[in-house]
């Protein structure tokens, strides 16, 4: 599964004629583990929502396996390219009901073993599946939402700060699960993900490639080690320094 972004431009919602970002060109190849970095308001979430066809864009083309997004049924596209939002939305009902969402939507059998494996991996193995999902903590909901999306068996995951509410232990568990997940295949097709994070340690740990957005552009698209060792742009250097100083 290969995705190509050809000169994607998106205007700002509230200011007519101003661009949120312009002419973003990139590729997501099989086995890519991409960390999407950048300051707040650069349009990182919007870009991921565009890639999952939840948000319109003004110019450009997104292609998957050589076919433009307009040639795909949106449902088929989203089953392969799945967006996981930062804010988890629970369906009204139990944990089990939430885990069964995908099988209910698409009519397949519920893969209970797989769900148990993922729940165990994100440290929710002991959760009572009859418990109301709304009663879970923010961090637990975030992990349940991730497992719910994984049940879809997508080929590309678009992860929008999915560990923002997690304690360090759960965060590591999620990182480990996703690293394992990306190394496996969906029906023989290699997987990949794009992961928005503000945690540079996490970006180092989970990615083999960094996309850096600033000033309405995708300023850098480079290997993770190279990005952190010697960022090519001043904006990236300032961004990394800013986060490191903020941590001290």
């Amino acid at each position: 599964m290969q995705m190509q972004l050809k000169n994607i431009s998106k205007s700002k919602f509230d200011v007519q004629g101003e661009w949120l970002f312009r002419e973003i060109a990139a590729e997501i190849r099989p086995n890519d583990r991409i960390a999407l970095l950048g300051g707040s308001g650069q349009g990182k979430s919007t870009l991921l929502r565009i890639l999952s066809l939840l948000e319109p864009f003004d110019h450009g083309t997104v292609l998957m396996d050589g076919r433009s997004s307009t040639e795909w049924m949106p449902q088929s596209w989203r089953k392969k390219v799945t967006y996981v939002a930062q804010k988890p939305i629970m369906r009204s009902g139990s944990i089990a009901f939430n885990l069964q969402t995908v099988s209910m939507l698409h009519g397949g059998p519920f893969e209970e073993e797989l769900a148990r494996r993922y729940m165990e991996a994100v440290e929710l193995g002991r959760a009572d599946w009859n418990k109301q999902a709304a009663d879970l903590s923010g961090g637990e909901q975030q992990r349940l939402a991730l497992v719910r999306s994984l049940m879809l068996r997508p080929e590309i995951l678009l992860l929008d700060e999915i560990t923002s509410s997690l304690d360090p232990g759960s965060k590591q568990a999620v990182e480990k699960l996703l690293l394992e997940w990306v190394s496996e295949a969906t029906n023989g097709a290699a997987r990949s993900y794009v992961w928005i994070t503000h945690d540079l340690e996490q970006a180092r740990a989970v990615s083999n490639q960094v996309w850096f957005m600033a000033e309405g552009c995708l300023l850098e698209r480079t290997e993770t080690a190279a990005f952190f060792q010697s960022p090519a742009t001043e904006q990236a250097r300032v961004f990394i320094r800013g986060i490191q100083e903020g941590k001290r």
Binding site: T82, V84, I89, V102, L105, L152
Partner: peptide, 9 residues
Amino acid sequence: EMLLALGAS
């Protein structure tokens, strides 16, 4: 949107 993202019609 969550349901759409999971491939719902």
